[in-house]
Simulated scan of single mutants.
Amino acid sequence: MTDEWQAAGRYTPRSDSWLRSFDLEFSKELAARGLIAMTYPKEFGGADRTHVERLAVTEELLRAGAPVAAHWIGDRQIGPAVLRHGTRELQEEIVPRIASGEAVFCLGMSEPEAGSDLASVRTSARAVDGGWLVDGHKIWTTQAHHATHAYLLARTARGERKHDGLTEFIVDMDADGVTVTPIVDLAGEHHFNEVRFESVFVPSSRVLGDVGGGWKQVVEQLSFERGGAERALSSYPVLVELLAASARHADDRELHGVLGELVARLAVLRRLCFEVARAMDEGLAPVQQAAALKYLGNAFERDVIEALRRTDLCRDPAFDSVFGQALLASPAFGLRGGAAEVLLSLIARQEAHA
């Protein structure tokens, strides 16, 4: 499919395609071919395939730089979270719409001044007849301007620890009181947003899991977010150009040495992706393994770009757009999904309990 669409000029491969390349029709075509919701039960529109099988498909889509941002968040983590923790009513309402490419999700997690401290949530939800009223402010909300739904983490009670009293919700983005404001990035592109919630009514049926049990659930969910191939392949188009250049510069031993190291690291990262997918197939939530993959994968993505920067190739007009595109996207690699310090603390806990 990707070859067909590229040949027809439907899309141009690019770095960071899973975050920046939004094409709802492409996602719906993938859904029609059974390539979204692959691991979901058939009764909800899925294919009952394994996470390892899904990994093979997502790797190929990322390698092709395909425009998959419309379905990526919903397919990757919201569907699995609803299947694990949602009521039957919520599963029947939400999961088939993700599987068909109809529902587009954004993540209402990050907040101003909170950095990577996800537990410092100020957005609040108070109980009212039939549901909850939400007030708060989220930031860096990818594709919120296209989204039909938001996953939202809000505080429903105050506890002794800041991790207590958090609850997950599914919110309609067209609900009264939801306002989306664009954030334009260094590349002049609009995929980030600020989202404000002002007395937004959320029905009780849209609570995901247990009221007040959101922290444990969101940590589990982050293993789906951090543990995929996108954590190592965001700058893959740059690596492709470097490999092509190496064939034209057969006597450049330094370039070949750098590429050899990068290819070896990529092989290790692919193995880590496989191990995370296999753990998910066993019903586990591999929080620490996913954190390790994201930490190492982000470093790899940046080093691929740096390898091109150290050569004269980035000054060649043929490489300029590929290099510039990846370079402008790279500051976010180590932030989204958790900063390095957060990931290292998760990995350290695993070592402490080993």
Rank of each mutant, 00 (worst) to 15 (best):
V195F: 03
I36C: 04
D164L: 13
T179N: 11
I98P: 07
Y40C: 10
F169T: 01
A114C: 11
L107T: 12
A229W: 03
D117A: 15
V121L: 09
T148V: 04
A81Y: 10
D210L: 09
V287D: 05
T141Q: 13
L242R: 02
K162E: 15
H137L: 14
A154Y: 01
L243R: 15
A125K: 03
A250D: 09
R226A: 09
W18L: 12
L90Q: 11
A318E: 15
A31F: 12
I305S: 09
G165H: 14
F319E: 05
S204I: 03
L255M: 07
C273Q: 06
L259F: 03
T141W: 05
N298A: 06
F197W: 08
I78T: 14
L166Q: 07
A175D: 09
Q217L: 12
V276M: 04
V178A: 02
D135W: 00
A290F: 09
A329K: 01
A264R: 02
H256K: 02
R14G: 04
Y11K: 12
P317W: 14
Q143V: 02
C273W: 00
R126K: 12
L296A: 10
P182A: 03
D129M: 08
A150W: 06
R63S: 01
T50Q: 04
L344C: 10
V202F: 05
E89W: 04
T58S: 13
L346M: 15
C106R: 03
A31D: 13
C314E: 11
L222K: 08
A56D: 14
L55W: 00
I183T: 04
V104W: 01
R278Q: 14
A348K: 09
V268W: 12
E275L: 06
D172L: 10
D176W: 03
E168C: 15
A291N: 10
A56T: 07
L242Q: 05
V304F: 02
L208D: 07
H71A: 15
R270F: 01
L239M: 12
R231H: 05
Y11A: 09
S17Q: 08
T12R: 15
A332C: 01
R33T: 00
H146I: 07
D174L: 11
L83Y: 03
A187Y: 05
G46W: 08
V128G: 11
Y11S: 09
S21V: 00
S21L: 09
C106L: 06
F22S: 03
E306W: 08
A37T: 06
V128M: 10
I78R: 05
K162R: 14
E275F: 01
G227T: 02
S205Y: 07
D164G: 02
Y11W: 13
H146Y: 14
L296R: 05
N193T: 12
P67Q: 02
G257A: 03
A292W: 01
S100E: 06
N298E: 14
G159L: 09
A81H: 03
S345V: 14
A250F: 06
Q350E: 15
V276K: 02
V268K: 14
A144P: 04
A70Y: 04
E113Q: 08
V304Y: 00
L343Y: 11
L344R: 11
E93N: 01
S223M: 07
S234R: 09
E111L: 12
A244H: 06
R88G: 11
V207N: 04
F26M: 00
E261T: 04
A70H: 00
Y295V: 04
D3A: 15
G34Y: 06
G165P: 11
